[in-house]
Design a protein around this nucleic acid. Structure first.
Lengths: 116, 116
DNA sequence: TATTATACCTAGATATTCAAGGTATTGTCA
DNA sequence: TGACAATACCTTGAATATCTAGGTATAATA
């Protein structure tokens, strides 16, 4: 992606899972869809995506099947499994926690405001 | 930190710079302060912090000076330079962009809503 | 016919964090 | 006194994640 490599680390898997929540997709499509949904902020590289998909498939978070496109080309579709949905929920919860932490620090931190 | 290692990557430098924006600090103090401001979300390790401080100092983003604590112990304080403030601004802008991107994807993505 | 877009994949370099260790001083508690 | 915890600094090596840069192959387009 164009952003600081580090920032993206850890969120890629969550984003991939999130995409599949709205329906089965094939790799190439995910890259376009991620770019579209993020208003071009995320330009995921194939070298990033495919290893993630393979790891998730091995871990049974995704299942895969091949299907012929109208053009005649074969596409490998990925489908979110129940286990994958659970992982997505965990990743999202972690993102919320992390995100809140960063915002707290950027806004000056937990001050005298919070008590009890 | 306790969160997925990857999520933190890239944000650590920004958080360190942000801490120093409110005043000079020494390493050990930054770890405690970061924890406090983030409501215990960030527990930065020394093995993470010190290399970051050294890198930032080498790049002239921070300057350092030693000062004796009331206890008699020596502490190494870090001070944000003008260049450091500029880097912080850049890092924050990048965080905003990244953050917005993630939220857009998590909320379903850029749909028919946005036009022009 | 040549180039671009589609569609999949992998290997190696790079970057970041963490775990685990080290050194040394100060404060506390038995 | 002696032992341990807390303070305060540091480094090395392993693990993890991403990107660069390549590879293969088919379909559409100029």
């Amino acid at each position: 992606m164009k952003l600081d490599k580090g920032l993206i680390a850890g969120s890629s898997t969550m984003l991939v899972l999130k995409l599949l929540e709205s329906g089965d997709m094939y790799g190439y499509q995910m890259i376009e869809e991620l770019s579209r949904r993020s208003n071009q902020v995320f330009q995921m590289q194939e070298g990033t995506l495919y290893p993630i998909l393979h790891t998730l498939e091995k871990g049974k978070y995704l299942s895969a099947y091949e299907q012929q496109a109208p053009t005649g080309r074969m596409r490998k579709y990925y489908k979110l499994t129940r286990k994958g949905r659970q992982l997505l929920a965990e990743k999202q919860a972690e993102w919320e926690k992390f995100h809140r932490g960063v915002e707290d620090v950027l806004s000056g931190g937990a001050d005298a405001l919070s008590f009890s």
